[in-house]
Simulated assay, not measured.
Amino acid sequence: MAGLPARIVRDSRLLLLDFDGVVTTEAEDVGLKAQTLSVFAAIGAQFGERALKMVRLAGRAIYDAGGSLQLGPLLYHAAKLLKPVDAPIEPTLARLIAACTDSLDYRGIAPAGENLREALARLKERGIEVAILTNGVRENVFRVLALKGLTEMFPPEHIFDAISTLDKHGKLHPKPDPKGYQFVLRELGVEPGSCIVVDNSRKNVRAAKREVGCGGVIYIGNSLKAKDRKVIDHLSPSFVHLMDEIVTVLGRADIVEPGRIGLPLDEHISAPVD
Rank of each mutant, 00 (worst) to 15 (best):
L4Y: 08
P5M: 13
A6T: 08
R7A: 15
I8D: 10
R10K: 15
D11W: 05
L17R: 14
F19H: 02
V22Q: 04
V22I: 03
V23E: 02
E26A: 14
V30Y: 09
G31R: 05
A34C: 11
T36Q: 09
L37C: 12
S38V: 10
F40S: 09
R50P: 06
R50L: 13
R50E: 14
L52P: 07
M54D: 10
V55N: 10
A58K: 06
A58L: 06
R60S: 12
R60G: 11
I62S: 05
D64F: 02
L71F: 07
P73E: 01
V85S: 03
V85E: 03
D86V: 10
A87W: 08
I89M: 05
I89R: 01
L93I: 01
A94V: 06
I97S: 09
I97A: 11
D102P: 00
S103D: 02
D105L: 07
Y106I: 09
I109N: 00
A110L: 08
A110R: 13
G113D: 11
E118D: 12
R122V: 08
R122E: 14
K124D: 00
G127V: 05
I128W: 04
V130G: 09
A131H: 10
L133R: 01
G136R: 15
N140C: 15
N140A: 15
R143F: 13
V144C: 06
V144T: 05
V144I: 14
A146V: 02
L147M: 09
G149W: 02
L150N: 11
M153K: 12
M153P: 06
E157S: 13
E157V: 09
I159C: 12
I163P: 01
S164Q: 10
T165R: 14
L166N: 00
G170D: 04
H173Y: 10
G180V: 11
Y181V: 06
V184D: 01
V184R: 02
P192L: 05
G193F: 04
S194L: 07
V198Q: 03
D199I: 00
R202C: 13
N204E: 05
R206Y: 08
A207T: 14
R210L: 15
E211C: 03
E211P: 02
V212Q: 05
G213W: 13
C214N: 03
C214F: 03
I220A: 02
S223R: 15
S223N: 15
R229S: 11
K230Q: 05
P237W: 03
D244I: 01
E245H: 03
I246P: 04
V247K: 01
V249N: 13
R252A: 12
A253M: 08
D254R: 10
I255R: 03
V256D: 14
P258A: 05
G259C: 02
G262F: 06
L263K: 12
L265A: 08
L265F: 02
V273C: 11
